[in-house]
Design a protein around this nucleic acid. Structure first.
Lengths: 263, 263
DNA sequence: CGGCGGCTTGAGGTTGGTCAAGGCATGTGG
DNA sequence: CCACATGCCTTGACCAACCTCAAGCCGCCG
């Protein structure tokens, strides 16, 4: 649950959000100072509390320092669709606060600490620091890749494949923020919520998990899931972890690549 | 099909991509000049040609001046999932070129004209023009909202609702780039492709369309679709057009809003 | 004129949703 | 400390929905 901290002179550098940005663009001292100012105040949110509510105006971003949340939308027909799981380093309010009103809700599913950034302050930050703005574009590209995989999951994969893909993705993302070991993790969602994420009913999620257990691909102990046969799972769920890791920004980390024109 | 052009002194300002950016951030002469340089060369692509192929490296962005394309992914089980329709002003290669290799393909479904921008040149542009970089973040937020709606569509909406939502969204997006009249449009996809977009089989898409025709909600003539009862369709498809239009960037177009801290 | 792609419709079968009941663990209040 | 309530997991039975397969048709283009 807790993100492992390694002590450095500047606590800002340890923040998962800053660490994420720095994977894409080298930030100078001015950038770091600006981020420190943005991140100075913390908000504590209890498990189960709504952070963004569909239909209401959202005036800023909430940068996640620790804890988990879910983005979701309630439908007229009584259904609920989970859009994504929010992890440390993620941004709540993207893209809600860029619109007149939020089109979905975000709820904490564990105790969280957040930093609130008014959208105006965020826009100023981007205007003043091109490196941060550019890193944010790279971040957004990663979010998009995640959502695209989710569309493929719910749209065209078979139920068993969906569940496997969802488990592997969740494990990989948790692991990337230090919240999972190499081959096991604590699933933060109930089976009903998993169903809401991948577009299945809770009983059917249960059937799929049972099948995976019988086949010896996973083991479950409460919410702890152990991945027993990673290779088989990756084939079954057609899971390529590459969509979770972006390139660094060229020209920042390395020399600009040669121009090439494709016709 | 063709984007209506109004003659101004600077053709760059008429480009749908530039017009899109300028809706979010006021660009100065330097920004416009930089964009002109980026957009100087055109690539013509024929209908049916692949622009990005899954699994291959993608080294740059293709900015769409005219024409349509689809992003899609082929699956092991023989299925195909359409991720989105690409319209004038959109960017092909987002997010593919931010990753080691493209995780899905993009194919022209009509004659297109594109501008190729190597990823390095794009990064330079962002670093040199914070306004363009910031507008790109706003653009990415819009893409994300689109994908989120698509996840909801395929995940939890009933088949009839899905088709209706897809029709309304496609119409609204086409209309926003001047490719549709107020209540009718040319559907650029076959029924099979619509099925691949919303996660249904082609026969079932056909049945849903027939039902809408019988109910008097739409009329079809070839690929032309007329929306006969917008209000009923919007309720049926639970369609809110608001997710298609973003706020402008605060502090650029207007004064920075008052700071507010929510705990 | 012939072929092909896409639309349309039907029949039949499987999948996966719904409903319902039971079990287990956790937490809470008496 | 126990009794009870609650939430979630688990399983089964049933049934409707949607997919698959297949055939026919139309319009377009070569």
């Amino acid at each position: 649950m807790a993100v492992p901290l390694q002590v450095t002179t500047n606590p800002t550098l340890n923040h998962p959000f800053v660490a994420m940005l720095r994977r894409y663009a080298p930030l100078n001292n001015g950038d770091i100072a600006a981020l420190s100012r943005i991140l100075d105040r913390k908000i504590a949110v209890k498990k189960g509390k709504d952070i963004i509510v569909e239909g209401y105006e959202c005036k800023g971003l909430y940068i996640v320092e620790s804890g988990f949340a879910v983005r979701y939308k309630l439908l007229h027909n009584g259904g609920r669709q989970l859009v994504s799981i929010v992890l440390p380093g993620d941004i709540i309010g993207f893209p809600a606060c860029f619109f007149e009103r939020a089109m979905y809700s975000v709820m904490a599913i564990a105790k969280m600490t957040l930093h609130y950034v008014p959208i105006g302050a965020f826009a100023d930050l981007c205007q003043q620091s091109p490196s941060i703005a550019t890193a944010m574009i790279w971040f957004a590209a990663g979010e998009t890749a995640l959502h695209v995989e989710h569309i493929v999951d719910t749209g065209r994969r078979a139920p068993l494949e969906r569940v496997v893909h969802f488990l592997l993705e969740t494990h990989a993302r948790l692991r990337a923020v230090g919240c999972a070991s190499e081959s096991s993790f604590e699933m933060p969602l109930s089976q009903e919520s998993i169903g809401d994420a991948v577009g299945l009913s809770a009983p059917h999620v249960n059937r799929m998990l049972r099948e995976l257990r019988i086949e010896g691909l996973i083991a479950m102990d409460g919410h702890e899931i152990r991945l027993l046969d990673r290779a088989a799972l990756q084939i079954l769920g057609e899971f390529q972890a590459s969509y979770l890791a972006r390139h660094p920004i060229p020209g920042c980390v390395q020399k600009r690549p040669p121009l090439r024109q494709l016709a």
